[in-house]
Design a protein around this nucleic acid. Sequence first.
DNA 1: CACTCACATGGATACGTTTTCAAGCATCTC
DNA 2: GAGATGCTTGAAAACGTATCCATGTGAGTG
Lengths: 355, 355
Amino acid sequence: MEAKRATIKDVAEAAGVGVATVSRVLSGGSASPRTRERVLAVAAQLDYRPSALGRNLRQRRTGGIGLLVPDLTDTFFGQLAEGVLACARSAGEPVVLGSTGDDPEQEAELVGMLLEQSVDRVIAVPSGGADTWAPAARAGMTVVFADRLPAERPGDALPGSTADLMLLDGVLPPPPPPPAPPTGVPAVLADDRAGIRTAVRYLRGLGHRRIAFLGGPGHDRRVAAFREAVGPPADEDLVVFATGSRDSAYAAASGLFQSRPDLTAVLAGGNMLGEAAVLAARELDLRVPRDVSLVMYDDVPWAELCSPPLTVIAQPGRDIGYRACELVLRTAGRRPRTVVLPTELIVRGSCGPLR
Amino acid sequence: MEAKRATIKDVAEAAGVGVATVSRVLSGGSASPRTRERVLAVAAQLDYRPSALGRNLRQRRTGGIGLLVPDLTDTFFGQLAEGVLACARSAGEPVVLGSTGDDPEQEAELVGMLLEQSVDRVIAVPSGGADTWAPAARAGMTVVFADRLPAERPGDALPGSTADLMLLDGVLPPPPPPPAPPTGVPAVLADDRAGIRTAVRYLRGLGHRRIAFLGGPGHDRRVAAFREAVGPPADEDLVVFATGSRDSAYAAASGLFQSRPDLTAVLAGGNMLGEAAVLAARELDLRVPRDVSLVMYDDVPWAELCSPPLTVIAQPGRDIGYRACELVLRTAGRRPRTVVLPTELIVRGSCGPLR
DNA sequence: CACTCACATGGATACGTTTTCAAGCATCTC
DNA sequence: GAGATGCTTGAAAACGTATCCATGTGAGTG
């Protein structure tokens, strides 16, 4: 009963036509209504499904879309992946997934695998720098970055401008004006500069002056935005970094609280860092927001479950994924575009006035 | 500069040998040390990477592994996916991902896509029933179920045995004795029967008698275990169901609390249900655990962040994924096996004595 | 009616690989 | 030294499709 799948040849024979005709009918090419009907009927009757293998080989490309994220355990990347999948499904494209663990080496390996599979369209949350991604582009891949850009060569610090810090806080305009798109690399990013700036202003408005930043891998732009927002003189001890793991995040948070008991507010650069901050604060008997105020980048469902519920900078993870997928599908040969999506400060209960 | 990839033919020419020899050398076949060396050198120099397209077509199968989960936004499935990815990477296999949204129709569609891609090994958290999966098996797919089994035909209620309810609670033996593997279908499951039973006993030990169960899609086995554990007479109003969405989960939880203010404990069948329960309880000013005790199936990082931290039934999501992937790789033609992994009750602070 | 033009059609080819098969060659055995 | 044995090797076929090209058919035009 292990009937092997019918091939285009079987359909052609059964319908009494040539394989070329069958191929045309199924690909939407021109054919007489009469034969078209017959071919379709036979195909349906034989339960024929064209083999992606043959097609791909013939056209020298795999239809699919590659998706590379650091860690699916991080809810934000889960949201992002769901967005990509939604868009890909509506386009009928399969998605091949890789988890990099925020390790450039694994990332490079996965890129190699995609290359081997002839997957020529990739959307990635990059861990490695330009040196990882240059080969991919050179091999003809269309790659769209999501959520982050690959690290620039060292020394390319973002130009810090403190001029607009003096602006008055106003009502957030419904579609916040996106900043100038970085460069020509195709990417979909959240406007984290605006998000961070809004959060810092909010904290300053509550009276906080010693605000710390908990950063993770790929948070360079957020860190830069933070430094810009707090303005010089920067207190460098108040900016600490973790690697991608939960342990590392906890260690960073705990170390921060212990080494700088004078800090009054913490801005966590991602939801895993926020998680760590809540945990570390509790462990050290610091009450939120009484002893320390907390703002977390990323809105995730459980932010509302904490007590107090966490004030967050929300970025539209699902939309980022969806747009990135749209971009990678349409930017076939066209000029790459960068999309910046708005963030939103959602005030809940984890920040209080300085006391 | 858009150099097209070198093919096996190029390597053969450059090395002055036949393509068959190159293929053999690269596939680990036998060859004289002399030619082997030369071929390898040339291949490296040309940066040759064998095309998966050609290989797949020749062997009539795509190397990859299909992975179908209901929702990547659910942390548990994120963990599971990470496990699958880890195993697949170590085997050098690509993973093509699909998110079913707990919708049998979408699931069937995704199975069709995998079939079209000639992905013949799938690991799935099934949403649909046997009717969805029979065609897949008939088409020659090796499918391993993870976390759940496809719904049986209506009427196949699990045989409820209440005999062992009278056993004394003991120390949990390090490797809890797995129950008899259901049938011949290959699957990797958590021992949710034991997990639920332990949790119910724990709650009863605290004095609770009116315990409710919040179920979601695919929680049939958990519901059955719950019914078995609380024993007759079952209070059917205390078992409520939600679909896969967060809204639905919240509605179910809120409805439950309002319609049965007399309940004293809730067992949430999954982490999204647990999330909803916490939220609904807070909204209705029910304090945990003073007014209502709460146990959640699934240990997720944020369970510890709630206050009080949630008492949970932990199941090893990552291991489930990893083992499922191992199974789908090794169960090439062999006899299918079912693996049951232990669960663990992790007591934190969300349960208290009846008052 | 002859000619052209548009279009439908099928044969043949190419895509890059693995695998089968037979041939070539050196070594071993009697 | 003749035959057998083992290993290495390359030519060729096959996988299922899309597409080029030539052929055939009908209608339309002068």
